[in-house]
Write a protein that binds this DNA or RNA. Structure first.
Lengths: 229, 229
DNA sequence: GACAGGAATTGAACTAAGTGCAAGTCACCC
DNA sequence: GGGTGACTTGCACTTAGTTCAATTCCTGTC
């Protein structure tokens, strides 16, 4: 049992690793202790409880996200970059979606990110409530895109825990879907073959939707002519 | 203990009530039994396990959603109606977001709904992959909008469970946010007053974002060569 | 160099929750 | 009225968050 060296930072980083692998329920204090080479309860000296640990982990994620240079780009490029970076982050850490849906989290990391978001959209010409709504719309769109990845993580966790062959389980799911889609020709035409990556269905949705959403927002700018360049 | 009358349907309905009140973690088999006036384990005769119960509950929700008449409306009105109805449903049952993020769910209810969605977007002129992406983009946007309501439910659950004054907890959260926003003028200007409804921040975001997104999608219709490229 | 005191860690134990199991209970049919 | 099968129950096992008293380690002080 290595004595010293257990820091809050280490704990948060290990927690993020476990969360990435198995989602919000996959993080257990005992598992965390095992990974850190200490007793599960040792963590409680550094962190109040699991909820707060998750809060810390969430805020750590926000810190990871790059903020684009506001001077160098037009708002559209900056907004796209921020949304894309955020999407990459949430895809890598889909438990963030679960965390935001179950914890009231507002830490310094998110404040920093939010401020930059508002800067981009205000520079575009959005003012007041409209800026709030534009920022909010893009934000929830990005978050919604994490539902698929989160489900994939949850599925993998189930497979790892209950044993069971991934191929077989997925095959059965596809078979069930095929069965369900039988009465709907539009769905039958879209069924993924069992060899496909399940996530392939979602590929491209984000880029396509983001571009469309930003187009629509841009068209709603109070002063369109000056913003177009 | 009333003997007969325990049906799967009753169980699912009671489960939905509990889920609405307290979210995914708020549904416990013991609590469900108590509500139904039977032992917790009685449920297991009708339902394989909690996971499957959630699956049944999810599919029941899909069945609730109305499907607009395709003949009567143009695609834009139909798409708006479907998204709005879906939004209303997810807002009423925010645990659906959690369920979709942790369970692979594809039941008859969702198949029915998806088919209608594709019908609307194909009628608009979207074809193939583009239809998939348009449908997917709107869908994840609607889901993302449920994060706020889900967090609110989780907060209320915490308050109810741990005791504690809602006013006070919210007041502290606002105070913390104010503190965090101190270094960011854009955020300070947007702080909700403690008397505001927290959800008021999100009000309007959905309608605004949906209209913008549909505008953007419409501009991407294959037969529309009007938009600058 | 011994030691006091605080920092950090540990194992045992309590609680809540999902669930398997074997025994019990009821309704209905011969 | 007794058997059969559908349904229900209490008990107990397991996992997980958390508390707590006890223990160990480090550090500064005499």
């Amino acid at each position: 049992m290595p004595r010293d060296g257990l820091t809050t930072d280490q704990i948060v980083r290990a927690a993020i690793d476990l969360l990435d692998a198995d989602g919000l329920d996959g993080l257990t204090m005992r598992g965390l202790g095992q990974r850190l080479g200490c007793a599960a309860t040792a963590v409680y000296w550094h962190v109040e409880n699991k909820d707060n640990l998750v809060r810390l982990a969430v805020d750590e994620l926000w810190r990871e996200v790059r903020l684009p240079d506001l001077e160098a780009n037009d708002w559209r490029a900056a907004a796209t970059e921020m949304a894309t970076d955020l999407h990459a982050m949430v895809t890598r850490h889909p438990w963030l979606l679960q965390a935001l849906a179950t914890h009231l989290v507002y830490g310094p990391g998110k404040a920093r990110h939010d401020d930059h978001l508002f800067a981009v959209y205000e520079r575009a010409g959005f003012v007041g409530e409209q800026a709030d709504r534009a920022v909010g719309a893009v934000f929830v769109f990005v978050l919604g895109n994490a539902v698929g990845p989160a489900a994939t993580v949850a599925l993998n966790r189930r497979l790892r825990r209950d044993g069971g062959d991934a191929e077989q389980v997925l095959g059965e799911a596809v078979a069930r879907a095929t069965d369900l889609a039988a009465s709907y020709p539009r769905l039958s035409a879209r069924l993924p073959s069992p060899t496909d990556d399940v996530n392939a269905v979602f590929a491209g949705t984000f880029e396509f939707g983001l571009a469309a959403l930003l187009d629509g927002l841009q068209a709603r700018l109070p002063d369109q002519e000056t913003a177009a360049s």
